[in-house]
Amino acid sequence: MKAFTTHRGLVSPMDRANVDTDMIIPKQFLKSIKRSGFGPNLFDELRYLDEGQPGADCSNRPINTEFPLNFPRYKGASILLARKNFGCGSSREHAPWALEDYGFNAIIAPSYADIFYNNCFKNGLLPVILSEEQVDTLFDEMEAQEGYQLAIDLHTQTVSTDTGHVFHFELDEFRKECLLQGLDEIGLTLQHADQIKAYEADRAQQHPWVFGAIK
């Protein structure tokens, strides 16, 4: 997995609450059996004026010029500034895949849906949680200044603005470590294979019906 340590980049807005995974990547793109290539279809229904089809070329599609991600000033953004309960809805990991493929490295929002939050870490995408007031401040500063950038440091768990704000954010120690080092979680778990087997042996004694039924 891709590691995340520090990142400095252009910020773009997604100024609405409860952005759901279908908005992030509409369901027709879930038919793909691949993990990559979802970036051009990120926020597809908002970004384009026509209906997107999986596998189709997006370069000549009519663009919704009112959608901020299409504003020239946000071109090349790598940090998405969002509102509460971001990523609600389905468990589709295609949502972080699309954000990552588009070029985002981090999201900043007051809260996230649990499954989406979890999925981000598996893909080197950092979901930062700040308070509503802090997020408001960042929105105000971003709107006021073209080319607005933020610096995120995962070691110190801070988001810094060029205007001098330093906002601290919380996250689990385990997730932080995995992300900092880009660790392969499956490999880590398999280091405990003996413990898993011991658990299974014990459990098979107590609850034998859990094993062997499905063949």
């Binding site: 990991e93 972080p96 499954i115 979890n118 999925n119 598996k122």
Partner: peptide, 13 residues
């Protein structure tokens, strides 16, 4: 519910 990375994690471990 789980995401696809976790589907892989459960399959493998």
């Amino acid at each position: 519910g789980i995401g696809t990375s976790e589907v892989e994690h459960v399959l493998a471990t």
